[in-house]
Every structure is written in C-alpha cells, then in structure tokens.
C-alpha cells in the first residue's frame, strides 16, 4: 500500500475496521518522507568547520549519533541565511570570528587547529560569559516562562540553541537519542522512565 492509498483508506473511516496493530502500521506507512537536501550558503568552509567543531563538542558522537552525523552545521547555515535578520546574522558571524580571536590570543592558532584541551577551555570561558550575561538579565522580564533568562544576543547562547535544535529535531536525534515516536498509539500519564524507553525501542 502506498502512502496515498493508505491515507485514503484511513480517511474513509476504515481506521475502525483495522486491528490496532495494523492501524498503527498503516499510519506509519502513510507518512510522507520528503528527504532533506540542503546546501551551505552563508558560512564559508572555515566558518562551517568551526561551527561543526563546536557543535560536535557540545553533542559528540557516543553510542548514538552526534551533531556532525546529523549535519547540524547545514541547519545552522539555513537559519543564519534564511531565518536570522541582518543584525542577528552579523552578530552571529562576529561571534564566530571572535572564537578564533580568542584561540589566536591564547594559543596562537585558530579554534579548529587547537587541541581538544584548548577547545574545551574556550567553551568553558564562553559558557561562563553566557551565564554572566544571563544573570545580568535576572531582574528583567522573561521572554518565555518555563526557562531561565535568555541572553539572546550572546553568540554562544545562539550557537547552543541552534545546535540543540538542529540535533534533537533531526531524525536520529529525535528517535535514537530521545524516544520520540510519531504515532505513540496510546497515552499513559505516569509510567517508569525505564519502561517508557524500552517501549520506545520496540
């Protein structure tokens, strides 16, 4: 059964006659797979390498895929190119250049050519600075309830946001790292974490 046939079947009310397992299978078959083709348009090779390196340090490959595996840099390039406004774009690219300025000053080389220890040191400093800026916002209104103050203009905060977004909304990030299922089939309001994950792996 192809996708359109499956959807037609479901839309005509046949969903009722299908056994629950078959219903879920039909729903899953019916989903469109559009494919994701992107090209890099704003970041040059060096900028892209720097973004890739930082993203992979934040979300490294372990027993599950990492940021590089799911092409986070391509997603970041898309956002910088088509989603950011001119000011945000400039701010992001300046922040990215500043990472090399820091490593040059400390280690006499660009970030991508620095040792893992040196890179870790830089991320730690960037993180401290991000926290300080967040603390400075403590007394200001929060843009999103539910989350701590957001230093929107901090380059590292911007990059972390895009890295995590790019990773956890990728297919591997959502389904292998988290246990996202498109069609769970039922709702349980309170189950053990372990049981839930095992079910997710079925």
């Amino acid at each position: 059964m192809n996708r359109r046939d499956a959807l037609r079947l479901l839309a005509t009310g046949a969903a009722l006659q299908l056994a629950p397992g078959n219903l879920l299978a039909a729903l899953r078959d019916a989903r469109a797979l559009l494919g994701t083709q992107t090209t890099v348009r704003t970041l040059d090779l060096h900028q892209r390498a720097t973004v890739t390196a930082i993203a992979e340090l934040i979300i490294p490959k372990t027993d599950t895929p990492g940021a590089t595996d799911v092409r986070v840099a391509e997603f970041i390039d898309l956002i910088v190119t088509e989603w950011y406004d001119a000011e945000e774009r400039t701010h992001f690219l300046n922040g990215l250049a500043d990472v090399d300025v820091r490593t040059q000053a400390l280690f006499g080389r660009n970030f991508v050519d620095s040792s893992p220890g040196q890179q870790t040191q830089i991320l730690t400093v960037l993180g401290q600075q991000m926290s300080e800026e967040a603390d400075a916002l403590q007394n200001h209104a929060r843009q999103y309830r539910d989350s701590p103050p957001q230093p929107q203009k901090n380059f590292y905060y911007m990059l972390r946001g895009l890295t995590l977004m790019g990773y956890y909304t990728s297919e591997a990030g959502a389904t292998r790292e988290l246990d996202f299922q498109i069609i769970p089939g039922r709702f349980d309001g309170c189950v053990d974490v372990r049981a839930s994950r095992e079910e997710g792996e079925n």
Partner: peptide, 21 residues
C-alpha cells in the same frame, strides 16, 4: 522539561548529552 533546558546550561560533551536524553 525537554532538551530545550540545555540551551542555557553551560555543559557540553558526553555527560551533558546523556543528561539531556
């Protein structure tokens, strides 16, 4: 809370990734 909480945290690397899973 989901993975979004990790944006404003300063952690990175395998342990950080595991915590957000």
């Amino acid at each position: 809370q989901g993975w979004e909480r990790g944006i404003a945290q300063t952690g990175f690397g395998p342990e950080f990734k595991k915590s957000l899973s």
